[in-house]
Write a protein that binds this DNA or RNA. Structure first.
Lengths: 220, 220
DNA sequence: GGAAAGTTTTGAACGTGTTCAACAATGAGT
DNA sequence: ACTCATTGTTGAACACGTTCAAAACTTTCC
């Protein structure tokens, strides 16, 4: 049966993630992972084509957890600011055990060739899952978001999340206090900013922003 | 004399940058650089403590060139949108020869430990130089930017430039057409967006954005 | 001119991620 | 039970970035 195979794969992944958390990315060598897991180096490579793919494993796991805890945190929260806060805070929560590892993760993720690249093909599923969280945050909010914004907003908020994650990586304040402060400040501001869309003069600018986003996106 | 030493240093740097441009970051191995330059590997390391430092050399050179061509492009341009366009377009221009290398550069730059990290200490000078370009773009514009924005705007625009650079890295359209389109669309929008600061309801949101930025920045 | 001190250069060696030919274990078909 | 193809596993080997003791060269000082 395939169980034995899957067992080895899981073992390697588990050991790797544990080591990432406990001793960091660079010190977690493929040899060390193999030794700790009691397999050969080549065997680890049979399941994961590269160290990057182990990082992808982590990425997927973290995203999955984010989906779960974000859904919980969204319950009963109505206003957009609160919902955005919930999603961003839980996003930081799930990344938390890997903070020291953050910059290595991002350095890995940012390569277009990396399987972890959030804009790339290999992580389409993970990105869609993450986008879905933001979509639900937008759609479930009341008062409802202006209709013309509703379509693109989740993607823009996801982009904001990427920005927050980047900020978090560099945030060395204890417990990443500054990131929390940023989220608490930015979320209500986004909500308030969006409510300005009703003002005639502002509305046109919003339209143009959306137009630009669509235009640039379309021309791929 | 120190000339001989400086000569070797320059030789290594020149060969490295040429190879970065022509065959990319990964294929440009330290051994290849050394061989091409006719020195030993160890000798290259005598002048550059790491491959990253060679990337920093490139970064500085590109920034220097940006300062020059941006200053030229700013001449005679009055409106903020035009000035912002000028700075961003020239920014992309100077990076252009290194496009295929872009993602490796960013992956290098993004590590907090890297000398090239644009937020880090080792590149304070380069960042200041880059910031100065945006400061001059803001200060030289007429009609003048609202006073309360003038202080923080250069830094925010510099951040926008980082975003554009990131976009550019992933932009595989021919000649990075999409990045140009993004700049042409976003620059006027930023200018128009800023002009909304006069509207009472909007003004408060702007104040809060600035307040948040300062607050998060202060708490380092 | 020659010794001492400083600077520059060398290349072998280390640990890393990754590859791969060979071997072992498993499972399917008869 | 016996093939034999598939799947899983091994460890030596490769190229890479990096280090470092030693050698070669330059400068300084008498």
């Amino acid at each position: 049966m395939a169980a034995k195979s899957e067992q080895t794969r899981q073992l390697v992944a588990d050991v790797a993630l544990k080591m990432f958390r406990e001793i960091g990315f660079e010190k977690t060598t493929m040899r060390a992972i193999a030794q700790e897991a009691g397999v050969s180096v080549g065997n680890a490579y049979y399941y994961f084509a590269s160290k990057d793919e182990l990082v992808q494993e982590l990425y997927i796991q973290v995203q999955d957890e984010h989906a779960v805890v974000a859904a919980e945190a969204l319950e009963g929260v109505q206003d957009l600011a609160g919902r955005l806060k919930a999603v961003l805070h839980t996003g930081v929560d799930v990344m938390n055990p890997y903070h020291q590892f953050g910059s290595d993760f991002i350095a890995t993720a940012i390569r277009p060739t990396s399987p972890v690249n959030p804009f790339g093909e290999a992580s389409t599923a993970a990105r869609e899952a993450s986008l879905a969280i933001f979509r639900s945050a937008v759609e479930g909010s009341s008062p409802a978001v202006a209709k013309k914004l509703r379509g693109d907003l989740p993607e823009l908020l996801w982009l904001m999340y990427m920005g927050v994650a980047l900020f978090w990586v560099y945030d060395t304040s204890e417990g990443q206090r500054r990131t929390r402060k940023l989220i608490d400040g930015a979320a209500p501001l986004v909500a308030r900013g969006l409510s300005l869309a009703k003002i005639p003069g502002v509305s046109k600018v919003f339209d143009d922003v959306l137009g630009l986003v669509r235009n640039v996106k379309a021309d791929s």
